[in-house]
């Protein structure tokens, strides 16, 4: 193992891929990330979306659930049709609610749904994965059995069933269904993280620095926290960067299918669902939230790809 690494290094040196300055891994990764234009753009979009979500009440011109009482909906002003109004730049939906305000408020759902379950998933997944990978034993056995079953249960199928089952319970109604979506996403997601962590730990456990730590009598908790976790962090960060948009897609899809966020709360998926039946006559009601989702998704992917390339330059794809 050691010789193989030295040879790889020698090889690299031989071909003169010279490492000129010694930078720390993280600073180096940060530097690479900031040099990646797509990632910086994505980061900017995410920050903008987050600000929009936080300051929605300030930015949005109307209450997102306020129906204007006018018959028929307005189209966005740039269409130039007679069904536009300067008061509603992006038009209104079929119930006469301001599209712009709804789109802005909907970003709150996406941001919250993106980050909250990811936090839970990674805390839980890393804890289980660490102990499963390090100690083996019962936790490991149980984790592997769960993994077997989950393997046969595609994430989205599982998500659908959980959401469908609890939708009508008191719990399912909390925050217009948002809490249920959090919980469902967390239940579905943690196993993957636990598995990823476990795999990393199993590899790292055999490495010399772990042996060395154990040899000098370090306690398991210290070995895990100070030696194993930091070394397993890079793939976990990349995975978290992709987990956030995954959760956003999950919510959007559930809402689009009519089992996610409940009306009248605005979510991009729910907006599409409500406008979809009249797609042919009123395409903007569908297109605007669709474009919003696409932009946010691309932003997250750019950042995720950028992080992956920055943290593991060899994996550059």
């Amino acid at each position: 193992m050691a010789t193989a690494t030295t040879h790889a290094q020698e090889r690299a040196a031989e071909l003169n891929v010279l490492v000129r300055r010694q930078r720390s891994l993280w600073r180096d990764a940060g530097y690479r990330l900031m040099r990646n234009r797509a990632a910086v753009l994505g980061l900017a979009v995410i920050v903008a979306a987050a600000l929009m979500a936080v300051f929605a009440p300030v930015i949005a011109p109307y209450d997102p659930t306020l129906q204007n009482g006018k018959v028929g909906n307005f189209e966005p002003v740039w269409t130039g049709s007679k069904y536009t109004s300067p008061d509603y730049v992006l038009g209104t939906d079929v119930l006469g609610r301001d599209m712009l305000s709804r789109l802005i408020y909907a970003s709150r759902i996406s941001m919250v749904v993106g980050f909250t379950p990811t936090l839970v998933i990674f805390t839980l997944g890393i804890a289980v994965g660490l102990s499963s990978g390090y100690f083996g034993g019962l936790v490991d056995q149980v984790l592997m059995r769960i993994t077997d079953v989950v393997y046969a249960f595609p994430d989205f199928l599982f998500l659908l069933i959980i959401v469908a089952s609890f939708r009508n319970s008191a719990f399912g109604l909390l925050l217009d269904g948002l809490v249920l979506i959090f919980v469902a996403l967390a239940i579905v997601g943690w196993v993957g993280v636990a598995r990823l962590t476990r795999g990393q730990i199993l590899q790292l456990k055999e490495r010399e620095f772990t042996e060395a730590a154990r040899a000098i009598g370090a306690k398991p908790a210290r070995i895990m926290w100070r030696h194993l976790l930091p070394n397993a962090l890079a793939p976990l960060i990349v995975s978290a960067a992709f987990s956030v948009p995954g959760a956003i897609i999950g919510e959007a899809t559930l809402s689009f299918l009519g089992v996610g966020i409940r009306p009248p709360t605005a979510s991009w998926g729910a907006m599409i669902q409500q406008a979809f039946p009249s797609f042919s006559t009123n395409p903007w009601g569908v297109l605007l939230p669709a474009v919003s989702i696409s932009i946010v998704m691309l932003a997250f992917t750019f950042v995720g790809d950028g992080l992956r390339d920055a943290l593991d330059p060899r994996m550059k794809t």
Binding site: I272, P283, L287, A290, I293, S294, M297, L298, T301
Partner: peptide, 13 residues
Amino acid sequence: TIPSFVIAIFFIY
């Protein structure tokens, strides 16, 4: 990156 139902929307449009 973009969920299939969103792509479907663009295609249909």
